[in-house]
Nucleic acid binder design. Structure first.
Lengths: 143, 143
DNA sequence: CGAAACCCTGTAGCGGCTACAAGGTCAACC
DNA sequence: GGTTGACCTTGTAGCCGCTACAGGGTTTCG
């Protein structure tokens, strides 16, 4: 299997495959006489594994650690679980931040009664006013 | 006010201030004889405005547009509102994606009964199995 | 034989910073 | 007046996970 076929099977870009190889997530395959990469089914399996982890938004460094852990059958599974749970916490934190963000943006949009000019715009006023200080917790007040 | 003072007041890094100037979000201030940047209160206000928008996760390009819009009092406020609403939609989409992600990671972590070796690990099995295909919608199956 | 589709390497770009190097300036203190 | 240290200047490179070139070689098909 050449790189285009592999990439197509896994639903990724050819460049991404080469990138994963460079980053050590995918073993370097053997080469044909003309220097083309020649992949086997094991490479596809690994690539699919990486893509699945990426679809769970794991950073490549963590996926790499996961691969290293899984290649050693003696390792306790708790390390794998800890990695997943740490990642889960990251995702939770981000989700909560986005929820708060959403509420703020919604409130902001509600400021705007239609048909007027920016000079009287509630949104901009709100943004500039909030930027002034106390009202908003988003930027730390230096003392 | 010199750059360190300005940055401190706004709670940002000095480098970030220079970066905003390069990107056209902050007007180039006048300089002292020795070439130091000299800021006034208007610069601080603008910087706070940018930071507030950033805390709402708006990309710099959009903040720039917002500044351009707000500097022209004749512009209809609807454009400002549209910008905010578009951004709100982006945030909502992302938040929903993270919610789905969270559920998947939680399910994954539940696979792991403690105290065993990775050879029998539910998580890895699940990840590799899911990577194999049908089970998971995350990677498109090529035909 | 020639065109199109594939492959190769190397490099640069995205966003929003952050960090470093190598120097100049300024205020305080001995 | 010399020296320390905190500040400032510019320019450049790094982070992440790709993506998109440029400039070549190879394979495949008609």
């Amino acid at each position: 299997m050449r790189i285009g076929e592999l990439a197509h099977q896994a639903g990724v870009d050819v460049q991404t495959v080469r990138y994963y190889e460079r980053e050590g997530l995918l073993a370097s395959p053997s080469r044909t006489q003309s220097g083309y990469r020649a992949y086997g089914p094991a490479h596809l399996e690994r690539l699919n594994f990486v893509r699945h982890c990426r679809s769970l938004d794991m950073p490549l460094a963590e996926i790499k650690r996961l691969i290293d852990l899984s290649s050693d059958a003696r390792v306790s599974c708790e390390q794998v679980d800890a990695l997943v749970r740490t990642h889960l916490e990251r995702v939770q934190t981000k989700r909560k931040a986005l929820e708060a963000l959403e509420a703020q943006l919604q409130a902001l949009s509600a400021q705007c009664a239609s048909g007027h000019r920016v000079a009287d715009c509630g949104i901009l006023e709100e943004l500039i006013h909030a930027a002034h200080g106390e009202a908003c917790a988003c930027h730390p007040h230096a003392e």
